[in-house]
Design a protein around this nucleic acid. Structure first.
Lengths: 103, 103
DNA sequence: AAACTTATATATAAAAACGTATATTGAGAC
DNA sequence: GTCTCAATATACGTTTTTATATATAAGTTT
């Protein structure tokens, strides 16, 4: 049917795009970061405290999420605040929550 | 708020579980396989034809998805038919489609 | 037995993760 | 201004994981 076809993830580019985003989300630390950010924007240090690994490691993971436009940042003084990038990202996180919580 | 808390992906195990599933979905070939299977169950050879790589490679990817309970299989004669594993998997694929299609 | 379908073992290549060290940027003290 | 401290990013090397090709095994059908 029509509706179904429209919902197909078909084109090569669409597949690639989706899989890049999913891959970026799929690392435990990055997923934690994203869940943390779904509440409210946070500074890098906040994230480090919540998630619990080295500052450098967090920063590297943030770079990965940033490169894929999954999160965005704003700089205030010498701190950098991160938040979920766009509606699509928010949907993704909510989707993950809905699907995985309570199993 | 309450509802929000309930939707949090919080426990370490929950995070690990979600990220394992997401990672399994996040390879382009595996995502293609899953999309293909969202229509209807298919034999390995069907999948090879649809997705387009070697039989061995497909089989290896199927093993990964199978190990994570994302797909299940049934054997009929000398063919093996795969389909999406459970409701959770179907939700995941549908949500991925919803999120990524039409961007 | 020969042909077919699927799975697996093994080796290699490629990519990702992480630690350590270092760079950058901004703010405040002096 | 420049020194210093704090916050964040990046570079680089090493280890671990993942992907894939090639070859082969195992089970089924004819």
């Amino acid at each position: 049917m029509k509706i179904f076809d429209e919902l197909q993830l078909s084109g090569e580019e669409e597949i690639e795009k989706a899989s890049r985003s999913l891959r970026a989300m799929s690392h435990p630390l990055r997923l934690k970061i994203l869940c943390t950010l779904s509440e409210t924007e946070k500074s890098v240090q906040d994230i480090v405290d919540h998630v619990g690994t080295s500052q450098s490691n967090i920063s590297q993971h943030l770079a990965i999420l940033r490169d894929k436009d999954i999160i965005t940042s704003r700089k205030d003084a010498n701190k950098v605040y991160y938040r979920l990038g766009d509606t699509r990202t928010v949907s993704l996180i909510n989707m993950a929550k809905n699907v995985f919580v309570g199993e």
